[in-house]
Computed example of a mutant assay.
Amino acid sequence: MESNPTRRRLLQLSGVGATASLAGCSQFDIPGSQDDNGADPQTESEAELEADTEPDSDPEDGITAIVQPDPEALQQLQQEVMAELEEGELDQQEAQMEFQQRQVELISSHAVEFESEMAADDDISVEAGVAQEGALLLDGPDERFMELLRNSEVSGLMPGEEYGRMLEQQQQQQPPVEPDNGGEEPVEDDADGDADAGDEADDGDEDADE
């Protein structure tokens, strides 16, 4: 990838757009909308991608596409939640959680819609994706990526290794999984007990012979 000057130039131009898009999305956050660990919210109702989170190939071989809803949609969402807060339907904490959840749902739905559109594209393939982040790992020709940018189908493009870094951060944020014994008591090794029983049986046979 590094030997391709066209792709390097493409990422230089679009990387700024991707960063600005993510920053533009975060500006609508209500203060305190993240949890105590600073992690993004997870909702049961968020849309899911057909592609797996983990790619089968090296992320560096692809391109990370960032897809975000229109700023107008995010502004409308913020206004709706603020109206509910002002009318007393929600308190401050509830408003933060409501905005947080609906924002993730909006981003996830937009990512799923983009994936569905790319399924009919002969040039672009979706290798992996994280819906709630609006991030998808794509493979395809540079000319098609330029078209996606010109048509505003993606908010920005970044190197594929950025997707790999995002996966590493998510894995670090996940709590360790404790082993599940199923509530069963551990089975003790009874080999010594069997050996003792065998010795006692041998002693009994010797007494009988005498």
Results as ranks from 00 to 15, higher is better:
Q12H: 10
L13E: 09
S14V: 04
G15V: 03
G15Q: 02
V16F: 04
A18T: 00
L22D: 02
A23V: 07
A23R: 08
G24H: 08
C25F: 15
C25Q: 10
Q27L: 12
Q27P: 03
F28Q: 01
D29Q: 05
D29R: 08
I30P: 01
I30T: 04
I30E: 02
I30M: 08
G32H: 14
S33R: 11
D35S: 05
D36L: 13
N37I: 09
G38A: 04
G38V: 07
A39Y: 11
D40L: 14
P41W: 11
P41G: 12
P41L: 13
Q42H: 07
Q42T: 05
E46M: 13
A47I: 10
L49C: 06
E50C: 12
E50V: 15
E50L: 15
A51T: 10
D52N: 15
D52R: 15
D52I: 12
E54N: 09
P55A: 01
P55T: 01
P55W: 03
D56Y: 07
D56P: 02
S57P: 06
D58S: 03
P59H: 13
P59G: 13
E60I: 11
D61Q: 10
G62E: 00
G62N: 01
I63V: 12
I63D: 02
A65L: 07
I66D: 02
I66C: 06
Q68R: 14
P69Y: 13
P69A: 14
D70H: 07
P71F: 02
P71V: 03
P71Y: 01
E72F: 08
A73P: 01
Q75V: 10
Q76C: 07
L77F: 05
Q78D: 09
Q78F: 08
Q79H: 09
Q79M: 15
Q79E: 14
E80M: 08
E80W: 08
E80D: 06
E80S: 05
V81N: 02
